[in-house]
């Protein structure tokens, strides 16, 4: 009996998380386009616009270029979307622990964030056209440059947890959620974790391939970069994948830095049944995800022009890298000297 329940749970989990990721991701994309327009003084599209876009893309012809390796070209978007959905299984969704808690930790999530980029990149190479190859190379350079600060930030936080709670699994997200990082750091540690937060926000912009770092799909330079040869339903799947990744990155940052719940605050004023507090926490989680997505995607898209390719590497390996190492040193000093 237990195995049947377990099998059902495993089969249902991706669908639940997939539905959440896709729907909320598309809603976030709509809000993002609306807010970008409003910030530029324009009226902006209706909130349902991403759904219309996908429906239209599903209706268009799905061209497979002559130079393309057919099976990889078609498989790449599917693998990308599937990998993005599986990443959500290891992330805590609002008040609920990760659906696969105890089966995947932060390093697994770090690599699962890479798999969709890798799949689209392989698809871009498989298309065999010069624009898509150049786009895919730039995406690879972007992935290399993002890895150093991302790894440094995750290792720094995990090291901090391993020195405070030696018993707990330092890389598991439940440790991050159960004891938020801000409560058990001294003054230096606070500055260090602040730096890490800023670097993580910059990283999520480049992880999503948004404007300051969208060297891979640079519209004006290489007209669509990796996605040049994708049309019709393939492009629709990539559009949905991009929406899901916004939710993935925002949930990761929310779990690492803002795992706070709203219901305890309200609970000491008015008695809350369990269902009510869960829904409040869930809505608070959705609001936090929107806030993070707003800061990383919309604000950056409106405020910054695109970086040059080697400047991206210099930024991430230079400025962001040194910032994370400085944050690591601050956290180490905070642990040893307890300031």
């Amino acid at each position: 009996m237990m195995y049947v329940l377990l099998a059902l749970y495993i089969i249902a989990a991706p669908f639940i998380v997939g539905a959440l990721g896709i729907l909320y991701g598309m809603v976030l994309k709509g809000i993002d386009r609306k807010l970008t327009a409003r910030m530029q003084g324009r009226v902006g599209p209706p909130l349902r616009q991403p759904f219309y876009d996908v429906l239209k893309l599903l209706e268009k012809e799905c061209i497979i270029p002559e130079n393309a390796v057919k099976w990889l070209f078609n498989a790449a978007p599917l693998i990308a979307l599937a990998a993005s959905i599986t990443t959500l299984l290891y992330l805590p969704i609002g008040p609920f622990p990760p659906l696969f808690s105890g089966n995947g930790d932060l390093i697994v999530i770090l690599y699962l964030l890479e798999v969709p980029c890798l799949a689209i990149l392989a698809g871009g190479f498989a298309a065999g056209s010069p624009y898509s190859t150049v786009g895919s190379q730039r995406e690879m350079v972007l992935m290399i440059s993002c890895e150093f600060p991302l790894a440094a930030a995750i290792i720094a936080l995990a090291w901090k947890y391993s020195s405070i709670y030696p018993g707990l699994k330092a890389f598991s997200l439940t440790t991050f959620v159960n004891n938020p990082i801000w409560n058990n750091v001294g003054v230096l540690g606070f500055i260090g974790v602040g730096i890490l937060l800023i670097v993580m926000l910059a990283l999520s912009t480049s992880g999503l391939g948004r404007l300051p770092f969208d060297i891979a799909e640079a519209g004006t330079e290489i007209s669509g970069g990796m996605l040049v040869e994708y049309t019709g339903r393939n492009l629709g799947i990539l559009y949905i994948n991009d929406a899901v990744r916004v939710v993935v990155f925002a949930t990761l940052i929310n779990a690492m830095f803002f795992p706070y719940k709203l219901s305890p605050l309200i609970a000491n004023y008015v008695a809350l049944p369990l269902a009510a507090s869960l829904t409040i926490d869930f809505l608070f989680y959705l609001f936090k995800v929107f806030l993070i997505a707003f800061v990383t995607v919309t604000l950056m898209r409106v405020a910054f022009p695109r970086y040059r390719v080697d400047d991206v590497v210099k930024f991430y390996w230079g400025i962001a890298g040194l910032a994370t190492l400085a944050a690591l040193i601050l956290i180490v000093m905070d642990t040893f000297f307890g300031w």
């Binding site: 997939g18 599937a82 990998a83």
Partner: peptide, 18 residues
């Protein structure tokens, strides 16, 4: 297992297209 199931989910959406 989760990857294959979400691949199935993606394929369902994909197969509705042209």
């Amino acid at each position: 297992i989760a990857f294959l199931i979400s691949l199935l989910l993606a394929y369902i959406i994909w197969s509705r297209g042209e």
